[in-house]
Design a protein around this nucleic acid. Structure first.
Length: 800
RNA sequence: GGGAGCAUAGCUCAGCCGGUUCAGAGCAUCUGCCUUACAAGCAGAGGGUCACAGGUUCGAAUCCUGUUGCUCCCA
């Protein structure tokens, strides 16, 4: 019998076979019913994304929770889907068109969107198919995309609603401008990096004097042409004599005032600050305070504008070099020092962000943030690990308005329609906008026509659709009373990365409260970042990221899942190492061979259960239940990797190393029926406990272990429930273990071969009757030991 | 510049309210075994002044203060 089953577990073939089976049986699909729901919405990956190690970890965790909930009798629903990722996807489509010799600028909006949808259809959702290889038990019939009609309309409805509530407004603000993507980005999309740069000390001549100068220090000499003031500290004695004077901007000799404000740090540089309201947020605020002129010297693409007067059309970084030369030649450079400072880079394009004045749409955050903060503070929503509460609190307390417009085409177009007079109407459609525009117009001739209306060209920030995700996937915005949203919302757990706690998590909580008066999820589990062995982030340029699908093909999804999870407690980074996957693979093999062993035993129905087997079964039953209670407690704490480790040790140590050895019949001897049945019963419970972690091999073993009917599956079976157990049995067995290990050790120290029998003398303890529960086991497991009671002192094990 | 967190075996971590699982786990290492389930295995073993310095206490890895080093978030 054993010879029929390979001694090494081979995942190939097994995994696809069972995934297809599960799909065919519809096990992943969920519809509302009488059971308690358990729901997770997937953090939607970018529509053009491909599976990377971070997804593997994140989705493995989701699958574990969903599969376990399903086996706990809940109606489990895991909603998959993808995000249109407006800026990232648009960048990819633009690049692809460029390769084909097509310039976006020469396309109409409709033509471009045609290309974008084509791209989406072709490449979109690849990642979802890849998730199937991982074993993800998503309800694929519910797959959503953030630009699906229902979700698109939900976004528009919410925009209109918030606009009508006065929470969305249009305003002139300084925004983070990405000169490469040619769009505004939110504060959260800017990464600050430390860079080595120069600090230029530039002297400006005081107007009306032949040789009186003010020296300022700047890291950005190219912005000098946009200066509209010089600012010094009001108490700085060095500059008191300049009161009321004016200064000339170098090279162009534009006359600008000198202003006095406490904002200036007297210690920094020379204590004099050049003020460029168009190109620095702090300068902008100073400009507002002193009503300074704003001279925008940059074009949207980061080249110098006409307003700069010099270097027009040249890139700002080229100009930095050129203007430095020019300033030098004209005697304006006092000195140049090395300097390190933080520079903002676009998260998407890695381009240096320029602060830029522009008209954008904003959302007021203060009002929405308040309840969202409270819900986390009072543990209505639980963060795992809880340390992220601090981070959350800090951000929510200092939240600023959210710039939600993006100068892109791929996304939900802002539903604002401009009238010829410059005013605008916010409405669901052009027709509706027209009706509103004409509402107060009695005179038939002066009424607006459809063609008078011009829709806003911009689209909404991607996160303005993802923040509705837990609601919109159930169409809960458009149809707030539909059975799905009523049943599945609030969802249970959200599994995500801490880096999007503000982008996404915080805003979902706000949207949930605003539109459902209910939290979007009860628990948030923050995963760590997958890094390489040296702790570096996985990246394409480093080439340190393994290809997930290759890992699965080579080792099996179960091995990959186990390997990744074993070393990733919530919130801790995971240092990826091939050895982890190997450990997972070895564990699969261990399970496989345990199955081979148990299935290989011939059974003798006439045989009575030997005492040694009876006590073994009783002990393991106790050990199993003790461990199961522990595992369940770890799940409750969201300590999934520890739960897996506990199950791992239960199987490997308790079940395989101890229990199976205890009941193992001598070679070619049969086992008694009650013991075999107990063993198979235990085995079945164990693989059920393991199923959420390793879905494929547990299904394979479960199907081999006993005859199953079509339509049966471990994934829809029930998790074993912990029973009361006798701790005394476990303790007593602990002593037996110690004795056995001591004997094995003695045998080894004295070089006594396994086959050679030894006799162990045990000193009787006073008058108490000795406990002989495990004596027979000691004889069996320490191999070739016979026990004898002695009143003499215990001497040592010795040869017979 | 503001805030948060971390420092325990070679590596990754667990040790929450200070004292009966208090120095632990997995991996790695070393030694001996191809013992009829598994060498992707079995049986053993070694390994830590719990970052440093003070303090509180009968008692500190655990609480307090300071120092050093690292990480993350925000500006």
């Amino acid at each position: 019998m054993i010879t029929e089953i390979a001694s090494k577990y081979d995942s190939s073939g097994v995994e696809d076979k069972w995934y297809e089976y599960w799909m065919k049986q519809g096990f992943f699909h969920s519809v509302p019913d009488q059971r308690e729901p358990y729901c997770i919405v997937i953090p939607p990956p970018n529509v053009t994304g491909v599976l990377h190690m971070g997804h593997m970890l994140n989705n493995t965790i989701q699958d574990i929770l969903v599969r376990r909930a399903r086996m706990m009798g809940k109606n489990a629903c895991w909603v998959p889907g993808t995000d249109h990722a407006s800026i990232a996807t648009e960048a990819k489509v633009v690049a692809k068109l460029k390769e084909e010799g097509i310039d976006k600028a020469n396309l109409s909006r409709e033509q471009f969107l045609g290309h974008a949808w084509e791209w989406k259809t072709k490449h979109g959702g690849i990642i979802l198919d890849q998730l199937k290889k991982l074993g993800a038990s998503c309800d694929w019939e519910r797959t959503c995309f953030t630009m699906d009609e229902a979700l698109y309309e939900s976004v528009i409805d919410v925009f209109i609603d918030l606009y009508n509530k006065g929470l969305i407004y249009r305003g002139i603000r300084m925004v983070n401008w990405d000169p490469k993507a040619l769009t505004a980005v939110s504060d959260e999309e800017v990464n600050h990096k430390e860079v080595n740069s120069k600090l230029y000390f530039v002297r400006y001549r005081v107007e009306g004097t032949p040789d009186e100068w003010v020296t300022i220090a700047t890291t950005r000499p190219e912005t000098i042409l946009g200066d509209t003031a010089i600012c010094v500290h009001p108490e700085d004695e060095r500059y008191q004599h300049l009161l009321g004077k004016r200064i000339l901007v170098p090279l162009i000799s534009r006359s600008i005032p000198i202003i006095y404000d406490e904002y200036v740090d007297r210690e920094f540089g020379t204590g004099a600050l050049k003020v460029t309201p168009a190109h620095d947020i702090n300068d902008y605020n100073l400009g507002l305070k002193y009503k300074l002129e704003v001279i925008d010297t940059f074009n949207p693409n980061g080249t110098m504008s006409e307003a700069a007067r010099l270097f027009v059309g040249e890139d700002r970084f080229v100009v930095r070099k050129k203007i430095t030369e020019e300033l030098k030649n004209n005697g304006h450079i006092v000195k140049i020092e090395d300097y390190t400072n933080k520079v903002g880079y676009s998260e998407r394009t890695d381009e240096v962000i320029e602060p830029r004045i522009s008209v954008q749409w904003f959302m007021k955050m203060k009002e929405l943030a308040k309840p969202a903060l409270d819900l986390v503070e009072d543990d209505t929503i639980l963060f795992h690990p809880s340390k992220y509460k601090n981070m959350y609190r800090h951000w929510m307390a200092n939240v600023t308005d959210w710039c939600i417009s993006r100068q892109l085409w791929w996304g939900q177009r802002i539903p604002a329609f401009y009238l010829p007079d410059g005013t605008f109407v916010v409405a669901r459609s052009r027709e509706e906008a027209l009706a509103i525009a004409n509402l107060n117009c009695k005179d038939q001739d002066s009424k607006f026509k459809l063609t008078d209306l011009k829709q806003d060209e911009d689209v909404l920030d991607t996160w303005f659709s993802s923040w509705l995700w837990p609601i919109s996937v159930f169409d809960g915005i458009r149809k707030p009373d539909n059975p799905d949203i009523q049943y599945y919302y609030p969802t249970n757990d959200l599994i995500t990365a801490p880096e999007i706690i503000f982008f996404w998590v915080a805003r979902m909580i706000m949207a949930g409260w605003e539109y459902r008066k209910a939290i979007p999820f009860k628990n948030v589990y923050f995963t760590g970042i997958v890094r390489d062995k040296q702790g570096r982030k996985m990246s394409k340029s480093l080439g340190n990221s393994p290809e997930p699908l290759d890992l699965i093909r080579l080792n099996g999804a179960d091995a990959v899942r186990v390997g990744m999870l074993l070393c990733s407690p919530a919130g801790n980074d995971l240092l990826y190492d091939d050895a982890l996957i190997e450990q997972g693979r070895n564990f699969c093999n261990k399970l496989w061979n345990a199955m081979r062993l148990v299935k290989g035993w011939p059974v003798d129905d006439s045989m009575a259960q030997p005492d040694v087997n009876k006590v073994s079964v009783e002990w393991f039953d106790a050990a199993f239940n003790a461990s199961l209670q522990n595992i369940n407690a770890l799940y409750d704490d969201y300590r999934l990797s520890e739960a897996l480790m506990a199950a791992y040790k239960l199987v490997w140590d308790d079940f395989c190393s101890w229990f199976l050895e205890m009941i193992k019949p001598a070679y070619q001897h049969p086992i008694d029926r009650p013991t075999l049945e107990a063993a198979i019963g235990f085995f079945e419970k164990l693989i059920k406990v393991l199923h959420p972690f390793m879905p494929f091999i547990t299904e394979e073993i479960w199907q081999i272990l006993e005859e199953r009917k079509t339509g049966e599956s471990i994934m829809i079976s029930s998790q074993p429930l912990p029973k009361d157990y006798d701790q005394g049995l476990i303790d007593k067995f602990g002593y037996a273990e110690e004795v056995i290990m001591a004997i094995r050790n003695a045998r080894k120290e004295k070089n006594i071969p396994q086959k050679e029998a030894i006799r162990l003398f045990i000193r009787k303890n006073n008058n108490e009757a000795p406990d002989i529960t495990y004596d027979s086991l000691v004889g069996k497991l320490a191999t070739s030991v016979s026990l004898a009671m002695s009143k003499k002192k215990w001497m040592a094990a010795f040869h017979l």
